[in-house]
């Protein structure tokens, strides 16, 4: 894979209250093989919490696609899917 998966973790207050701090441990939780393929940033509020149609906090953007009710295992699984599909 010749690009990186871009992950933006919302660390706005609504997401933090619903557990986003766990997601900030993504980097250290990623399997060794995936680590160099992912670019992670902790973002200020992405604003999705104000739009009920987007689902429930916490929110993460993966390559520009919103994931609601994000958890570490779901996040890692999604990253793996993307990497597997492109390599």
């Amino acid at each position: 894979m010749d690009r990186k998966v871009r992950v933006s973790i919302c660390s706005g207050t609504a997401c933090f209250v619903m557990g986003a701090s766990d997601l900030l441990l993504l980097e250290e939780s990623l399997p060794q093989a995936l680590r160099p393929l992912v670019e992670i940033d902790g973002s200020t509020c992405l604003g999705f919490c104000r739009d009920r149609a987007k689902g429930k906090a916490p929110f993460v953007l993966i390559d520009g696609v919103v994931m609601s009710e994000a958890t570490l295992p779901r996040l890692i699984a999604r990253i793996r899917e993307i990497v597997d599909a492109e390599s």
Partner: peptide, 17 residues
């Protein structure tokens, strides 16, 4: 801490803004 967090969310207050 949970209650303060809930108050912020209910008031749509984002601390970092």
């Amino acid at each position: 801490a949970e209650e303060l967090g809930a108050l912020f969310v209910a008031r749509e207050i984002d601390v970092s803004e």
